[in-house]
Design a protein around this nucleic acid. Structure first.
Lengths: 132, 132
DNA sequence: GTAAGTACGCACGCCGGAGTAAGTATGAAA
DNA sequence: TTTCATACTTACTCCGGCGTGCGTACTTAC
């Protein structure tokens, strides 16, 4: 596996643009690409934002993120869970009970995608072609 | 049923999460979805970041965003152009000369996706499953 | 006895993102 | 004269995201 930098804590670079020169973000096998795909996937964005308000269980998420299929919601949650962005807790009760919470890392990611979604919503009407 | 886990009353209001209740981001026909798809598409992200350093022409972008096919680069640029995020200028000279620049809106978008990409790159190694 | 709610897993199939290859126009360089 | 560079466009193809529908295991409600 390709290490971004063998041991450099990388304090000097804050901007990805710097790394473009080194070819990091552009490495197709860079794990960042994978995470990026999960986080910016249409359902991933909505799930992260939905969980900003607090813990939700599967069916609550389904209702909140209206339009998502059960299959996609389950898959998206698994992606985010393996990425360490959401924590899944299941209680062995009679009717199955599972809930999902943002991890500290997940909260940071949620805020960033939230900012992006926010900006797009506020500026989409100024965009040509998409009428107001 | 009964709430097993207490809900943290998120103080982040004015956030998109607020609009979820109004059904904005979740509206499948909301134009935001379209823009979001363009901006967060794998090549869209890289193009926006690449253009942060200044105007580039087609072939320069191809080299900088290594790995992108001509077809995808052209399509991505068209998406971002119709969204009003990049400005395309073509000069009617003998060998075709076209260059692309971020619009003011494009710069804002580029910064937001840059922040996200930045964060992912810096935190991907802390994620379970990926890297040590 | 049947329906509904809960949290998924699985098989099937569509569709659009994405790569490859080739074509277009044109003047300059070889 | 052939080749090259530029900036695309179009055609053909593959693959994975995604929805739909069905099944599971169990319980409460009608």
């Amino acid at each position: 596996m390709k290490e971004i930098s063998p041991r450099a804590p990388a304090r000097t670079k804050g901007r990805v643009a710097r790394r473009i020169e080194r070819g990091d973000v552009f490495e197709p096998n860079c794990p960042s690409r994978e995470v990026m795909k999960h986080v910016t996937s249409s359902w991933g964005v909505l799930v992260l934002i939905a969980l900003q308000d607090g813990t939700l269980r599967f069916s609550e998420l389904r209702r909140k993120v209206s339009g998502v299929s059960e299959r996609m919601l389950a898959q998206t949650l698994q992606w985010l869970e393996t990425d360490g962005l959401v924590q899944r807790r299941s209680y062995p009760v009679v009717p199955p009970h599972v809930d999902y919470t943002l991890t500290p890392m997940g909260e940071q990611a949620a805020e960033l995608v939230g900012n992006l979604a926010d900006w797009i919503e506020e500026n989409v009407m100024k965009m040509p072609g998409r009428a107001a």
